[in-house]
């Protein structure tokens, strides 16, 4: 990661952790907490979309797997909290691996269909297996997040924890894309034939990125379950999958900072649009359409470009090496 990215990250973390000190409205903090979790899912999805050239329409299912596995293991079986979250990530990762192996070996976008189907199956299972999941009425009484006896029982307290996870995910992902593996991923998403002939095992990388992507969604899902303490199938329907894909596109495909931007913007936007009551869905839709038609690279490169002189870098959105440009 370049020096510039480190400075941005530090500034970003500072701003984030100062917010609760000046912001007194707990409801607003809750919205930001959800944004923190969305960022984790969206960064994971952007690694897949921007760096492996594949699309998943099933990230709600991975998010849901994390949430339900966490809920069932801790509340029903009394497993310890943090090991359960890790266990949920491992199981979700194995499920993603099982989906990825057959579909990513094929050329083309078979993963979209597979994940879409998977999302629907998981959603039906959440409703039908009501002995385990609580069915349509949901799963209550999930233990709260805690670290060494300290229980995160308010929006304000948990803010710091969730945003640490969120910023940590961004840090590690930025690290990843600025490494040998990240370069290989960027190469394969851009020109698969050239990547293969440059010695990159493209199939293997695609599967790995997909697994990482699912594991991040699972982590966010587990945190969500232990934060809200109640989950129901509606949260994990196909619509959430679409929403996170939209966040990636709005932020800019292949730009991790863009994902942060897209996730925060689209989490907050519906709250702001409450003011216009029944028109909010309409306005939300219009905003999405305008952005996707006029800024297909996403909004973030546009916003960042205003502050940047070097067009090259903004256009690439790759954040690899600070380009000196011609």
């Amino acid at each position: 990661m370049g020096k510039k990215n480190k400075i941005y990250l530090l500034a970003y973390a500072l701003i984030i952790f100062l917010v609760p000190a000046i912001w007194k409205n707990n409801y607003h903090l809750m919205v930001l907490n959800i944004a923190a979790l969305n960022i984790v899912v969206v960064i994971g999805l952007n690694l897949l979309m921007g760096f492996a050239g594949q699309i998943s329409l099933g990230h709600a299912a991975f998010f849901g797997l994390g949430a339900y596995l966490s809920a069932i293991f801790t509340a029903t079986f009394g497993f310890p909290l943090w090991p359960t979250i890790i266990l949920a990530m491992v199981i979700t990762g194995m499920v993603a691996y099982a989906i990825g192996i057959p579909t990513l070996k094929l050329e083309g976008h078979y993963l979209v269909m597979a994940t879409l189907g998977f999302n629907i199956i998981i959603y039906i299972l959440m409703i039908q297996l009501d002995g385990v999941t609580g069915g349509p009425s949901g799963f209550p009484g999930i233990p709260r997040l805690q670290v060494g006896g300290f229980v995160f029982d308010s929006d304000r307290k948990i803010y710091y924890l969730l945003w640490t996870i969120s910023v940590g995910t961004l840090l590690l992902s930025l690290n990843l894309i600025h490494s040998r593996v990240g370069r290989a991923m960027a190469a394969l998403s851009h020109n698969e034939i050239a990547a293969r002939c440059a010695g990159i095992d493209t199939e293997n990388y695609k599967v790995k990125v997909f697994v990482i992507s699912a594991v991040l969604a699972s982590l966010a899902g587990s945190c969500y379950a232990h934060y809200i303490t109640f989950i129901s199938p509606g949260t994990f329907s196909f619509f959430y999958s679409i929403q996170v894909v939209t966040m990636v596109l709005i932020g800019g495909i292949g730009s991790l900072w863009g994902s942060v931007f897209g996730a925060i913007l689209l989490t907050i936007l519906p709250e702001i649009l409450h003011a216009v009551k029944e028109y909010n869905v309409l306005i939300y839709g219009i905003i999405l359409m305008v952005v996707l038609i006029f800024f297909p690279q996403g909004l973030f490169p546009v916003v960042a470009g205003i502050f940047r002189k070097r067009k090259d870098e903004a256009r690439s959105g790759m954040e690899l090496v600070p380009g000196k440009g011609p």
């Binding site: 690290n175 593996v181 370069r183 990547a195």
Partner: peptide
């Protein structure tokens, strides 16, 4: 890889002769 700089293109070319994996990257 037109989304990369001249230098990065060559760095990608070094892939089969280098080792760092996912954990190293993270």
């Amino acid at each position: 890889f037109s989304n990369m700089t001249v230098l990065e293109n060559v760095m990608v070319g070094m892939h089969p002769r280098t080792k760092s994996g996912f954990w190293d990257g993270l």
